[in-house]
């Protein structure tokens, strides 16, 4: 079932995420793009428009729906103050990595995002050593 869903939204390109009235300016909200069990995104409504992006901060996977704050055109993850200008996408505050975003447009009252595959950040953990190597080193 889940596999079929993946195929279904892989076929899609521009997907309706929400309507413009669902996310007040200066806020963000989490949605599931595509059919049930689809791709998690947040739609951010900043001063100049909408941006759809993965729902977590690229720093430490913090859910942006919990910790993201929108002020003017700036999105700040309040956990460790990583921030980005959503118009220029420049790094602000403590940010050390860029945001990944989906191409976003507004058609009438629909907020649309171009999604062919899920964007994710790499939070790879370092490997650890085999017990004997580790404890004898």
């Amino acid at each position: 079932m889940e596999h079929e869903n993946v195929l279904e939204y892989k076929k899609m390109s521009w997907i309706k995420i929400c309507s413009t009235t669902e996310v007040a300016q200066g806020s963000l909200k989490k949605f599931w793009a595509g059919v049930a069990g689809g791709i998690p995104v947040v739609a951010v409504h900043h001063k100049e428009g909408f941006v759809v992006m993965p729902p977590v901060c690229p720093h430490m996977e913090e859910p942006l729906e919990d910790s993201g704050v929108v002020s003017g055109c700036k999105l700040t993850c309040t956990k460790h103050l990583w921030a980005w200008d959503l118009q220029t996408m420049s790094l602000e505050g403590e940010a050390e990595k860029p945001l990944k975003t989906y191409d976003t447009k507004v058609e009438g009252e629909d907020v649309m995002a171009f999604i062919t595959e899920q964007l994710e950040y790499d939070f790879e953990e370092e490997d650890d050593m085999d017990d004997d190597d580790f404890f004898n080193s």
Binding site: V56, H59, M60, E61, E62, P63, K79, F123
Partner: peptide
């Protein structure tokens, strides 16, 4: 995540 931490940590 904990209040002052992040998920999976």
């Amino acid at each position: 995540g904990q209040a002052s931490g992040n998920p999976k940590r």
